[in-house]
Every structure is written in structure tokens, then in C-alpha cells.
Simulated scan of single mutants.
Amino acid sequence: MDEDINSKPRAHEVGMVIDTMSVEELTERIALLEAEILRLRAAIDARGQTLQAAKSIFKF
């Protein structure tokens, strides 16, 4: 049982072999990637808000 846990990658790697993954595993990967996309979009939004705040402070 411990071998199964250790043999599965904990994160998705772009280009990794997916031929041996089950539908369940592929679905889990999609959910993982979708969550990561949301996290990245939130980071972009936060940086945009910081930039706008800085521009408003230093506006002449």
C-alpha cells in the first residue's frame, strides 16, 4: 500500500506520460490543474491591483 502512495507523482508535470493513468487519475489531474489555474489567476489579479495602487499614488 505504501508503494502505491510513493509511486504516484504528487504533482502533474507537463509532458508526463499519461497513457497508464486511469480515468479517475486523469480526472484528478484535471482538478489539480484547474485549481492551479485559479491560483495563478488570483496572483495575476493581486499583482494588477498592486500596480494600480502604485500608479494612483505616484500619479502627477
Rank of each mutant, 00 (worst) to 15 (best):
M1K: 10
I5M: 14
I5F: 15
N6W: 08
K8F: 09
K8G: 01
P9K: 11
P9R: 15
P9L: 08
R10F: 11
H12I: 03
H12C: 09
E13M: 07
V14F: 07
V14N: 11
V14L: 07
G15T: 00
M16D: 03
V17W: 13
V17Y: 12
T20G: 11
T20Q: 15
T20W: 15
T20C: 09
S22D: 00
S22M: 00
V23K: 13
V23E: 11
E24Q: 06
E25W: 02
T27P: 02
T27Y: 03
T27A: 06
E28S: 01
R29A: 06
I30Q: 04
L33D: 03
L33P: 01
E34K: 12
I37Y: 07
L38E: 10
R39Q: 01
R39F: 01
L40I: 09
A42S: 05
A43W: 04
A43I: 03
I44W: 08
I44E: 06
D45Q: 15
D45L: 14
D45M: 13
A46T: 06
A46N: 11
R47S: 13
G48I: 02
Q49N: 08
Q49G: 07
L51V: 04
L51K: 02
Q52I: 05
Q52M: 10
A53I: 04
A53P: 00
A53K: 06
K55M: 11
S56I: 05
S56C: 11
S56D: 13
I57D: 04
I57K: 15
K59E: 15
F60H: 11
F60C: 14
F60I: 14
